[in-house]
């Protein structure tokens, strides 16, 4: 593994983002705006806001990075740059890690801003530290990236890639405990929720927020999903095609 090539790739992706300030702005402003709306929707129910905000802080980075990654890798595929790269000395792992570092940095900045806005002006009460919130958010972002990378190989066009969001992420969102606690769901759904990565993201955020219980178990499972999808994503980067 060559660190230089990983960071060359990370830097390249960050340069691409730099040339696209609107995407950067959307990445940071949109979650803040949604968080504010959430605050006023639950104006009379501060408890519900606490609960929903915690879940959202984990969901935003995942959602955004899922979308960005699936579109970005699809663009690399359709523009021929991926094929161009794969015949050069860079390995698939280096390529993926390059992406992971770039988007982890983007998620880091996003979660610093969003959590600060939530804790500051919006009055979100966090029992745990803001740092662990950011940590979980970055981990969620990486998970979104890994799933996006994997899923993008099943899409031939950018239209299809975007359609994977409702297919792959929305069911997880419904079952993750954001809308109703996992424990109160019917047996089958409760059972299914154990196999969905987003469930653990939401749970980890909730634990950081309430300060009750350790999120080590969630962390382990998110990391497991992360490695699984990264490996599956790496396998879908095929050097040869018809």
């Amino acid at each position: 593994m060559n660190v230089k090539r990983i960071f060359a790739t990370t830097q390249r992706i960050l340069s691409q983002l730099r040339h696209d300030p609107r995407t950067l702005a959307l990445m940071v402003v949109a979650p803040c705006l949604l968080m504010t709306i959430l605050k006023y929707v639950y104006q009379g129910q501060p408890q519900t806001f606490q609960h929903a905000a915690a879940a959202m802080l984990g969901i935003f980075p995942m959602l955004v990075m899922f979308l960005i990654t699936s579109v970005a890798t699809l663009r690399e595929r359709t523009s021929g740059t991926l094929e161009r790269l794969l015949i050069l000395p860079i390995t698939k792992l280096e390529f993926i890690l390059g992406y992971a570092f770039a988007f982890a940095l983007a998620a880091f900045i996003q979660s610093i801003v969003v959590s600060s806005v939530a804790i500051g002006p919006l009055g979100l009460k966090v029992a745990g530290s803001q740092l662990s919130m950011i940590f979980v958010a970055v981990l969620d972002a990486l998970l979104g990236l890994a799933i996006g990378l994997f899923v993008s190989s099943f899409a031939k066009t950018e239209f299809q890639a975007v359609q994977f969001l409702p297919v792959v992420l929305l069911p997880q969102l419904l079952l993750s405990g954001l809308l109703a606690p996992v424990e109160t769901m019917p047996g089958l759904f409760h059972f299914l929720s154990h196999f969905l990565p987003l469930t653990y993201s939401v749970d980890a955020m909730k634990k950081v927020m309430t300060g009750q219980g350790s999120f080590t178990h969630d962390f382990e499972l998110i990391a497991l999903f992360l490695f699984f999808f990264l490996a599956a994503g790496a396998l879908t980067l095929k050097r040869k095609s018809k």
Partner: peptide, 24 residues
Amino acid sequence: TQSASVYSDLTCEENLKYFARILG
């Protein structure tokens, strides 16, 4: 390649430097 496989959201210099770094 037949269709220019370069990053359209990078400058010419950034494109070349990236490929140069990948090649070492």
